[in-house]
Write a protein that binds this DNA or RNA. Structure first.
Lengths: 242, 242
DNA sequence: TCAGGATATTTTGCATGCAATTTGTGTTGG
DNA sequence: CCAACACAAATTGCATGCAAAATATCCTGA
């Protein structure tokens, strides 16, 4: 690690996303300082960073509290991400893909197909899907050629459950999960086809709908989780309330 | 001011936007500490905040530099803002305006009309236009009912020249300036009509185009400024390079 | 018993000091 | 004359200490 501050931010962020500090809880600088064996200064600086990420809230002279998110906020944020990713593929379609990006995105589709026929055997397959999926989304965003757009999407994605990486795999319904991934893959293929055909508006529509499906799936998984008392290991899920 | 940190951030931000420290310049903590008569700790904390806002960049162990922006970055960011404001009015149209918002937005249109017939006499008129325009945009964004969307737009608007408040009044061409404001006002009216008619998609298209015009106007003003060596007093303009 | 207030403790906000890294300068050897 | 190294100054990163504000505790008097 380059410096201690980044390390502290990382540790604190993981503790928060893991749900170690329930939403709404007060975080005292001294307490965190003792728990993680770092100076109060570093805790203070790290909390300021996490405030920018939206994981904690500060009240002047009254310290920091763990922020919690309603399902509606998460859903709203995913919708914004969808709008921006839609814009990204529209721009990518309008400007056209450079050959290297074209090839890379095609390769990712092929690799994701391979994961799907294997049927997501075990956590390895799921982790691989998450990586490939994120790479595909990021590739499309980069192809937009708009750096501010990419930064804005990245900022949004720091919110729990909003990132394209935050996928819920409902282990109680593996068949349904696989079907949803196949539908997502169909969207990916359609988006890439549209971008290649320079149909930017069409690509944007598909992408927006793709995000809405993701939000719907998350809501459903959240409800199922609440019903069955089964808590999937999804970073940040503990900070979301109905 | 509630605390010294906020005051320091404010002072530093204004100094940066005023162009007191040219883009790319190195900012030393001690130097700023001496210049503004605050402790190095506060300078350090303030710079961390300004880094979040995007006005300065930090290199580990090497301090902060004033960030500068290309005209293309500014233009890209305005386009993103337009997309998001378009989304906002689409949502507003889909959910409908509550009566209070409907009345307030209508009032703002009337007040802006009044400013326009007075022909923007002097800086007071311009300041009033800026306030009313910002209130109108913010009202529409609030009417979307999506808090994350509002936050995201607010974050983007911190970038120099991207905010709806960052309007260039080309004093060398007052007639053209007035015409542009009249065109903007026509857009405002059309957007509000579309939202009221629950035509969300139409409202979104108008809003996106509204933003594109703003970006175009800024580019033109920037070019004119470069040609004539006349520098309008627009916060952050000094940080933009061709 | 309980409301109100004085006092003690905790906690945040800020300043200062020290070590580590970086940057600038001068010197030496080729 | 210039490259490379050694040393000095400057600068950042971090820790600790102190004052102000907030919070908790205890006491008093009805």
């Amino acid at each position: 690690m380059t410096n201690q501050l980044d390390a502290t931010v990382q540790v604190l962020r993981e503790a928060l996303l893991a749900g170690h500090y329930p939403g709404g809880d007060k975080l005292t600088e001294q307490g965190l300082s003792a728990t993680f064996s770092v100076s109060r200064t570093l805790v203070r600086l790290a909390l300021a960073d996490l405030e920018r990420e939206g994981l904690v809230e500060r009240t002047p002279n009254r310290g920091f509290r763990v922020r919690s998110f309603t399902l509606e906020e998460v859903s709203d944020a995913i919708e914004v991400r969808g709008e921006l990713e839609g814009m990204a593929v529209r721009l990518a379609g309008e400007r056209g893909l450079v050959s290297e990006a074209d090839r890379e995105l095609g390769d990712l589709i092929v690799q994701m197909d391979a994961v799907l026929v294997d049927g997501l055997t075990g956590p390895d397959g799921r982790a691989r899907w998450i990586d490939l999926n994120a790479a595909f989304h990021n590739g499309l965003i980069a192809a937009s050629g708009n750096a501010t757009l990419a930064e804005t999407i990245a900022g949004l994605s720091r919110m729990p459950l909003v990132s394209a990486r935050a996928l819920v795999f409902d282990q109680s319904d593996p068949h349904g999960s696989l079907d949803r991934l196949k539908a997502a893959q169909a969207d990916h293929r359609a988006v890439l086809d549209a971008v290649r055909a320079r149909q930017g508006a069409r690509a944007a529509h598909i992408m927006r709908e793709h995000a809405l499906k993701s939000a719907r799936n998350k809501r459903a998984s959240f409800d199922a989780m609440r019903r069955t008392d089964f808590i999937p290991s999804l970073p940040g899920l503990a900070l979301v309330r109905a």
